[in-house]
């Protein structure tokens, strides 16, 4: 039920946005709960964007994982 999927914002009209979930899956979602812009990424749950994806944090998370990969086993 708490399933939420990231998607890219394609266009915005008022409190509605068209988003792209990838592989051609497009959907209209409500963006009242977030502040986003065209090209940004949002997390979508039950037809609502509930958060913007923090790209800097995502990169840092992946850096952390890469660090684990490179350091090998402690």
């Amino acid at each position: 039920m708490c399933l939420a999927i990231p998607a890219r914002v394609i266009s915005i009209e008022g409190d509605k946005a068209q988003v792209d979930f990838g592989q051609g899956v497009l959907k209209g979602v409500n963006i009242t709960l977030v502040e986003t812009k065209v090209g940004g990424y949002v997390l979508v749950h039950a037809g609502y964007a509930i958060q913007t994806v923090d790209e800097k944090e995502a990169l840092e998370t992946i850096d952390l994982w890469n660090e684990i990969l490179s350091t090998g086993i402690e």
Partner: peptide, 8 residues
């Protein structure tokens, strides 16, 4: 190395 592009 893991890279990022936020989509599928």
């Amino acid at each position: 190395e893991v890279k990022v592009d936020f989509g599928m």
